[in-house]
Computed example of a mutant assay.
Amino acid sequence: MFDGIVQFADKCRACGLDYTRFNVGDGPAAFLTLIIGAVLVGLALWLEVAMAPPFWVHMLLWIPLTVLAVLAGLRIAKAALLIAEYRNKAGEAGTVPAAPDEAP
């Protein structure tokens, strides 16, 4: 499904479904970043109040965790949105969507 870390391939390797028909966009990235950011800031504040570690511990812990959580979450969120668009035959406003097995 993916050609890079979070970039979709042009077509499915198994069934040939054209992924370029779907407009996933950056919607999942905005929501995911806000949600993960809120959770991780809350955890960082809790750690600071509970144990008061040095600043380098926060950097060593939270920067890689944030990057991994966002990248893994983006793959899941983008795939889920593409699946939802496929199942609901979503398309651009004002156009008639093609059937899933028809070529555009």
Rank of each mutant, 00 (worst) to 15 (best):
T95C: 02
D10A: 15
E102V: 12
R21L: 10
L60C: 04
M51N: 01
L65C: 04
V96T: 15
F55W: 12
G42E: 06
A98C: 13
L65S: 07
A14H: 13
W46F: 15
I63D: 04
F31H: 13
F2T: 07
G37T: 07
D10T: 09
P100H: 10
M51Y: 14
G4L: 06
A30H: 10
P100E: 11
P97N: 05
V57T: 13
L17F: 07
E48F: 08
M51V: 13
V67H: 03
L17W: 03
L82S: 02
G4T: 03
P28H: 03
V70E: 00
D26G: 00
Y86T: 08
A77D: 03
P54N: 08
I5L: 15
P53I: 05
A98L: 13
L17G: 06
M51A: 12
I76N: 05
G25R: 07
T20M: 01
V70G: 04
D10M: 00
P53G: 05
L81K: 12
T33H: 05
L17I: 08
A9M: 05
R75I: 07
L81W: 05
L17V: 12
A29C: 04
K11Y: 14
K11W: 07
G16T: 11
V6A: 15
R13S: 12
L81E: 13
G73A: 07
V41E: 14
G4W: 04
A52Y: 02
L74P: 01
D3T: 08
A77Q: 03
A14D: 12
A99S: 14
A29P: 03
M1L: 07
N88S: 15
A99P: 05
R87N: 14
A50F: 02
T20G: 00
P97R: 05
